[in-house]
């Protein structure tokens, strides 16, 4: 039986594909949807990472030192799940454009 890796393919470096397929990994600028943004109260944050795990856009980075949370504002949709799920209420949603 032929193994998949032994099967010949006609794949030159650049080639034409007929029919529908997606092949360029892109991201939507979902940050532009945001009406509110999460703001972290640094002293209250215990760096547990729950916000990060539940963030639909995976845009929260938890730092071990310094500022506990970093947000990738390019993708944060401002849904507020992070704030809602924070066990210490260390996150609050503030109107986009306000705060720091």
């Amino acid at each position: 039986m032929e193994k998949q890796q032994d099967m010949p393919t006609s794949t030159p470096a650049k080639r034409r594909v007929l029919g529908p397929c997606s092949h360029i990994l892109v991201a939507a600028h979902t940050g532009s949807w945001r009406m509110e943004r999460p703001q972290v109260e640094e002293e209250a944050c215990i760096r547990c990472g729950i916000c990060s795990k539940y963030c639909p856009t995976a845009c929260i980075t938890v730092n071990k030192e310094g500022c506990p949370l970093e947000f990738d504002w390019h993708y944060c949709k401002g849904c507020g799940i992070c704030a809602n799920e924070c066990p210490r209420q260390a996150l609050s949603m503030i109107p986009e454009g306000s705060g720091e």
Partner: peptide, 22 residues
């Protein structure tokens, strides 16, 4: 002749997503 996969195919070594919304 043996079947040769060409054009579009499902291969984790050569990634494409077939038949997405056009």
């Amino acid at each position: 002749k043996p079947y040769v996969k060409k054009n579009m195919y499902l291969d984790t070594k050569d990634v494409m997503f077939i038949n997405d919304l056009c």
